[in-house]
């Protein structure tokens, strides 16, 4: 057994890593605070946020409003933008110092980049990309629910003797909690002593498309090759229903719509209440991204399209007249 950095007996508290972008908490950080609050309460331990960045005091306040009892803040210019070296170094130092029992991170690209590195530095176990979290009865160990083999098999994973028990959690699984601006909590700034020369990654360029997060949409109106580049009717339906537009990989590859709206294995796994899937054939790499939707509606002109196997309501038709009629129908009701 690779020795743990500290023992279960010394460990205490549930921590969530608060990923932020330009001083604002990421959606998944809020989701972790919501689920974390519930887990901390059940176990009778405090919920601590770990926040790294520059000028992040408002984000720490936001975290308290969303359920954190305290927030450990490392504020430094060298933490302004995520790099593996800077974040792993500061996070490892704080964790070895405070010895949390559990550490949850969002399974975003940077959350995973950090978690994988940190788990080895701390010599502990990591359950990756969880779709569920619970305490095991009797032992009180964290049970991370994960899926494997293309989503066909589920398993629960636990980490018996190493601390912290680490897990990354898939965005969009847990609902974000509502904010209570009057909630009391403690903010604690820890000293940061980073050496710029030891940060090996240099960021040359960075592009973020603000705003869209299809994992949190209640309604997704998805288009594929069949929309032939015209997302206008889909956008209008999404607007009328208060939802978002999503797309197949092909539609993104053709440049019809941004990559941040891609659904599926190499895009986002979503679970909207309603998915309206238009002109998409239904390859498994696409359907894994919507299979947990409440209601799936498919519109496709090909009666043999495999998307109909995965749909509740099946419309074999040219998508354009159907969407046009649906817009009229929804407008009429408004």
């Amino acid at each position: 057994m690779i020795p743990s950095a500290y023992s279960p007996e010394e460990a205490r508290g549930l921590w969530v890593f608060l990923e932020q972008e330009a001083g604002r908490l990421e959606g998944v950080a809020l989701e972790l605070l919501g689920k974390g609050r519930e887990l901390a309460q059940a176990r009778g331990v405090p919920l601590t946020g770990l926040l790294l960045g520059q000028g992040v005091e408002p984000a720490a306040r936001e975290a308290i409003a969303h359920g954190a009892d305290d927030v450990v803040v490392a504020d430094d210019p060298l933490l302004a933008v995520y790099t593996t070296d800077a974040y792993a170094s500061v996070a490892a130092q704080v964790i070895l110092d405070r010895k949390p029992e559990t550490l949850l991170l969002g399974a975003t690209p940077n959350g995973r980049d950090l978690a994988g590195r940190l788990a080895v530095r701390l010599r502990t176990g990591l359950t990756a990309d969880c779709t569920g979290l619970a305490w095991e009865e009797g032992t009180g160990l964290l049970l991370g629910e994960v899926s494997g083999f293309g989503g066909g098999v589920m398993a629960s994973i636990k980490c018996a003797r190493h601390r912290p028990q680490m897990a990354t959690v898939r965005p969009g699984i847990f609902p974000p909690p509502s904010a209570d601006p009057d909630r009391a909590g403690r903010m604690e700034f820890v000293p940061v002593s980073l050496d710029a020369a030891k940060i090996r990654t240099e960021i040359l360029e960075r592009v973020r498309h603000e705003g869209v997060d299809i994992t949190r949409a209640k309604v997704l109106v998805a288009g594929g090759r069949g929309v032939k580049g015209d997302f206008a009717p889909l956008t209008e339906i999404a607007r009328l229903l208060g939802g978002e537009v999503g797309a197949s990989r092909v539609a993104c590859d053709l440049g019809w719509i941004g990559r941040d709206r891609q659904i599926g294995q190499t895009g986002f796994v979503t679970r909207p209440k309603v998915a309206l899937v238009c002109g998409i054939s239904g390859a498994t790499q696409f359907t894994v991204g919507v299979k947990d939707a409440g209601l799936i509606i498919a519109i496709n002109s090909d009666p043999e399209a495999s998307i109909f196997e995965e749909a509740d309501l099946c419309v074999v038709d040219d998508l354009f007249p159907v969407l046009e009629a649906l817009i009229a129908e929804l407008r009429g009701a408004a």
């Binding site: 057994m1 690779i2 743990s4 010599r123 502990t124 176990g125 990591l126 359950t127 095991e136 049970l143 899926s147 989503g151 066909g152 098999v153 589920m154 398993a155 629960s156 994973i157 636990k158 980490c159 018996a160 003797r161 190493h162 299979k291 947990d292 409440g294 799936i296 109909f308 196997e309 995965e310 749909a311 509740d312 309501l313 099946c314 419309v315 074999v316 038709d317 040219d318 007249p321 159907v322 969407l323 046009e324 009629a325 649906l326 009229a328 129908e329």
Partner: peptide
């Protein structure tokens, strides 16, 4: 450090697969 506890087959919600008839307006 980690161990696998339970393993089970994932089940996706059963889909109704109901085909709609009629004009585009009726379907809409």
């Amino acid at each position: 450090p980690t161990v696998v506890g339970a393993v089970w087959q994932a089940k996706s919600p059963e889909r109704q697969r109901q085909f709609l008839d009629g004009t585009p307006q009726e379907k809409a």
